[in-house]
Design a protein around this nucleic acid. Structure first.
Lengths: 226, 226
DNA sequence: TCGGCAACTATTGTCGACAATCGTTGGCGA
DNA sequence: TCGCCAACGATTGTCGACAATAGTTGCCGA
C-alpha cells in the first residue's frame, strides 16, 4: 500500500496521520482492537514505527491501551462526549478571546470568506454534507490558529478535533439545530473579533458551542434511550 | 540504574514517568538534546521502548523533535510561558466550574484540609519550599479531578502540569506576589465549590490564575530584560 | 453434562543489528 | 589565510527475531 500519502522523503510520522485518518474516518471503528501485525502489514512497514505512532495517538486520546492486552480505538460514552464538548467550550472560548486580541485584519477578512463559503455550502448541499466535509471546522480552526497561542491551538486542532471527528461517527447524521441561528452566531463571533472585543468574542464562542452541545446531547440521549 | 521505580512487574511505561521526572526536575535541562543511546543505557533498556516513551512525551509537548536531528527538551520563551498560563486559565476555570457541580461533600472537605496544609507549610517553611514541593499543585489537581471530566482533568494533570513544573525551573525562585491574597483566593474558590456556585467558582479560579500569571510575567519580563 | 485445569495460540513487549541521514572535521585549491 | 568539498563519525530511523504474557481451546474428572 504505497500511495495514499505520497513518499514523504524523510519520515514515517505520516503513519501517524494515516492511522489517525483510519480512526477518524471510521474505517477503524470505536472499540475495535488494533492488531499490530495486521496494521504494519497494511502500511507496509515494520512494527517498530507503528508502535511509535500508536503511542502518539494514545497520548492524543484516540487510542486506549491495556498492557499485554492490546490497544483499542477509544469508544466514547454519551457522557464522555458531553465532557469533550465542555472541554471544547473552555478551549475555544479562550482561543476566540485571544483571536480578538491577536488576529490581523487580513485574517479576519479570511474568516468572513470562510463563513460565506460555509453558508453557501449549507444552502446548496445541506447541513450534513457541510458537516461531513468539515467546513465548519475550518472556521473554528482558523480562530484557534488566530489565537497565536501554540498550546491552545495545538490542544484544539491536534488533540480535540480528531476526537470530535470521531464522535461524528457516532451521531451519524444530526440534522438539526436551528440552522440560521448557527449562521448568525458565527457571524456575531466574527464581528466581535473584527472589533477587537475579547470579552464578547469569548462569551459568544462559548454560547455558540454550548448551544450546539445542547442540541447534540438531546439527540444522543434520545437515541441512546430509544 | 535499577531502582528509582521498583520493578513494575509488567511494563516499561514507567520509562515515560522516569523520563518525565528527569525533565521536570531539571536534570535534563530545557533545550538539551536527548541522545537515545545514552538514555537507553542510563535506564538499562533498549532503544525501542525508549523511543516509544519519547513519542509519548513529544505528544505531551515536553519534547520537540527535528527529523534526523534528534529530540530536545522543550525550551519555553517568556511569551510561550504566558501562552501556557493563559491556556491554564481556560482549562482550570472550566474544571473549577464542573467541580462546583460534581464534587462530593467529602471531597470538598478534603479541599479544606489540603488548603490548611498548604498554608501551614507556607508559614513554616516559606513560599519557595511550598512551591517547590508542589503542595500548591495538590489543591489545583484535586479540583481538576473533581470536575469528573476525564479530558479536562487529563489535559490539566497530564499535559499542562508537567510543563508548568518545567517552567518552575526557569523562574528559579519567585518569591512574591501577595502571599495572603493568594491564600484568600484559594479559600474563596473552595467556598464557591462548597456552595455549588459554578459561575463564581469558574470566575474566581480564572481571576486567581490570572493574578498569579500577572506576577509571574512581571518577574520574568524584568529578569529577561535586565 | 458441566466445571476446572493445562497446553496452545495469538499477540504484545523487548532486543540487537543494519540502513539512512546529518554535522563536522580535515584536506585541497585559490 | 580563507572558503569550498569530501570523507568520516555520530545519531537517528527501520527491520526481523526472540521473550513474555493473555486469552482460548480442548481434555480430564466428577
Amino acid at each position: 500500500m504505497p500511495p495514499a500519502a505520497a513518499d514523504s522523503c524523510v519520515l514515517v510520522d505520516d503513519v501517524i496521520a494515516r492511522l489517525e485518518q483510519l480512526i477518524v474516518r471510521g474505517t477503524l471503528k470505536p472499540g475495535e482492537k488494533l492488531i499490530e501485525q495486521t496494521l504494519s502489514a497494511r502500511f507496509g512497514i515494520s512494527r517498530a514505527p507503528l508502535r511509535e505512532a500508536i503511542r502518539t495517538l494514545e497520548a492524543r486520546r484516540l487510542i486506549e491501551r491495556k498492557p499485554f492486552a492490546g490497544v483499542r480505538v477509544i469508544d466514547l460514552s454519551v457522557d464522555e462526549i458531553e465532557q469533550l464538548l465542555i472541554t471544547r467550550e473552555a478551549l475555544e472560548g479562550m482561543a476566540c478571546r485571544q483571536a480578538a486580541e491577536n488576529m490581523t485584519l487580513r485574517e479576519t477578512q479570511q474568516l468572513r470568506t470562510s463563513l460565506e463559503a460555509l453558508n453557501k455550502l449549507v444552502r446548496s448541499e445541506g447541513v450534513d454534507a457541510a458537516f461531513r466535509k468539515g467546513r465548519d471546522y475550518d472556521l473554528h480552526m482558523q480562530i484557534a490558529q488566530g489565537s497565536r497561542n501554540r498550546f491552545l491551538a495545538g490542544m484544539i486542532c491536534r488533540d480535540l478535533y480528531p476526537l470530535l471527528g470521531l464522535f461524528r461517527y457516532y451521531s451519524a447524521q444530526m440534522r438539526g439545530g436551528n440552522l440560521s441561528r448557527s449562521a448568525q452566531e458565527h457571524s456575531d463571533i466574527i464581528t466581535a473579533i473584527e472589533r477587537r472585543q475579547p470579552d464578547e468574542a469569548e462569551e459568544r464562542m462559548r454560547k455558540h458551542i454550548a448551544n450546539s452541545r445542547e442540541i447534540v446531547m438531546r439527540h444522543l440521549r434520545k437515541a441512546s434511550a430509544g
